[in-house]
């Protein structure tokens, strides 16, 4: 019973990765919109883009980790 609840929890935590995907898509979309407005400034900001994506994605990875913990370690 307790294990089944853990699986449900893992599924809920797994949704977090999808929500983080929204965040990553938001970062990339805004970068693209800005880059199309001012393409000359885009190349200098790719590092910032990757940092932003990394921060957004890290939180998704956190929830993925929680899901794994619930599945394998609880």
């Amino acid at each position: 019973m307790e294990g089944d609840l853990a699986y449900i929890g893992a599924g809920l935590a797994g949704m977090g990765t999808g929500i983080a995907a929204l965040g990553v898509g938001n970062v990339a979309a805004n970068f693209l919109a800005g880059a199309l407005r001012n393409p000359s400034a885009a190349a200098s900001q790719t590092a910032t883009l990757f940092i932003g994506i990394a921060f957004a994605e890290a939180l998704g990875i956190f929830s993925f980790l929680v899901a794994l913990l619930l599945m394998f370690a609880v």
Binding site: F55, A58, I61, F62, F64, L65, L68
Partner: peptide
């Protein structure tokens, strides 16, 4: 923590 988990989590996933 975030440096550690981002790298390992991405690769593991």
């Amino acid at each position: 923590v975030s440096l550690c988990i981002r790298l390992a989590g991405n690769i593991m996933a």
